[in-house]
Amino acid sequence: MKKRTGLTIVYLLLITGSIAMIFPFVWMVSTSLKTAIDVYSLSIIPENPTFANYIAIFQGSPFLKWFINSLIIAVITTLSVAFFDTLVGYIIAKFHFIGKTIIFITILSTLMVPTEMLIIPWYLMSSELGWTDSYWGLLFPGLMTGFGVFLMRQFMESIPNDILDAARVDGMGEFKIFLKVAIPQVWPAISALCIFSFLSNWNAFLWPLIVSHSEEVFTLPVGLSFLASGEFNTKWELIMAGSTITALPLILVFFLLQRYIIKGIVLTGMK
Results as ranks from 00 to 15, higher is better:
residue 175 F to D: 01
residue 147 F to Y: 14
residue 148 G to V: 09
residue 152 M to V: 06
residue 143 L to P: 06
residue 139 L to P: 12
residue 182 A to I: 04
residue 152 M to A: 11
residue 167 A to C: 05
residue 136 W to T: 15
residue 153 R to A: 00
residue 182 A to G: 12
residue 182 A to F: 05
residue 139 L to F: 15
residue 169 V to A: 12
residue 166 A to D: 12
residue 136 W to V: 15
residue 177 I to V: 10
residue 157 E to I: 11
residue 154 Q to P: 09
residue 160 P to H: 03
residue 151 L to P: 07
residue 163 I to G: 02
residue 164 L to T: 09
residue 152 M to H: 08
residue 167 A to Q: 01
residue 154 Q to G: 12
residue 147 F to G: 11
residue 146 G to H: 02
residue 174 E to F: 07
residue 171 G to N: 06
residue 170 D to I: 05
residue 159 I to E: 00
residue 176 K to D: 08
residue 160 P to F: 01
residue 138 L to M: 15
residue 145 T to G: 05
residue 165 D to E: 14
residue 180 K to V: 13
residue 158 S to V: 07
residue 164 L to Y: 02
residue 138 L to C: 14
residue 153 R to N: 06
residue 149 V to P: 09
residue 165 D to C: 11
residue 171 G to Y: 09
residue 176 K to S: 12
residue 158 S to P: 10
residue 147 F to P: 13
residue 161 N to V: 11
residue 179 L to Q: 10
residue 137 G to D: 01
residue 140 F to G: 04
residue 176 K to L: 10
residue 164 L to C: 13
residue 148 G to S: 11
residue 151 L to E: 00
residue 163 I to W: 00
residue 174 E to W: 08
residue 154 Q to W: 00
residue 171 G to F: 07
residue 135 Y to A: 09
residue 134 S to V: 04
residue 151 L to T: 02
residue 152 M to C: 10
residue 166 A to G: 13
residue 177 I to M: 15
residue 147 F to N: 12
residue 169 V to R: 13
residue 142 G to F: 05
residue 162 D to A: 14
residue 134 S to D: 00
residue 149 V to F: 06
residue 160 P to N: 04
residue 151 L to K: 05
residue 147 F to S: 10
residue 159 I to H: 03
residue 163 I to S: 01
residue 142 G to L: 03
residue 145 T to F: 02
residue 141 P to N: 03
residue 182 A to V: 05
residue 154 Q to E: 01
residue 145 T to V: 01
residue 135 Y to F: 15
residue 143 L to T: 02
residue 158 S to C: 06
residue 163 I to Y: 00
residue 160 P to W: 00
residue 145 T to D: 02
residue 155 F to W: 03
residue 165 D to S: 12
residue 172 M to F: 11
residue 149 V to N: 09
residue 174 E to R: 12
residue 164 L to S: 11
residue 141 P to A: 00
residue 138 L to A: 10
residue 168 R to W: 06
residue 166 A to M: 10
residue 144 M to T: 15
residue 134 S to R: 08
residue 141 P to Q: 01
residue 135 Y to H: 03
residue 172 M to H: 10
residue 157 E to R: 11
residue 146 G to C: 01
residue 148 G to I: 06
residue 168 R to K: 10
residue 144 M to A: 15
residue 151 L to D: 00
residue 176 K to M: 14
residue 143 L to E: 00
residue 144 M to P: 03
residue 143 L to F: 08
residue 155 F to V: 04
residue 161 N to W: 08
residue 162 D to Y: 15
residue 179 L to T: 12
residue 167 A to H: 01
residue 177 I to N: 07
residue 147 F to I: 08
residue 152 M to R: 09
residue 140 F to Y: 15
residue 176 K to F: 07
residue 171 G to C: 06
residue 164 L to E: 06
residue 168 R to L: 04
residue 145 T to R: 09
residue 158 S to G: 09
residue 150 F to K: 03
residue 164 L to V: 14
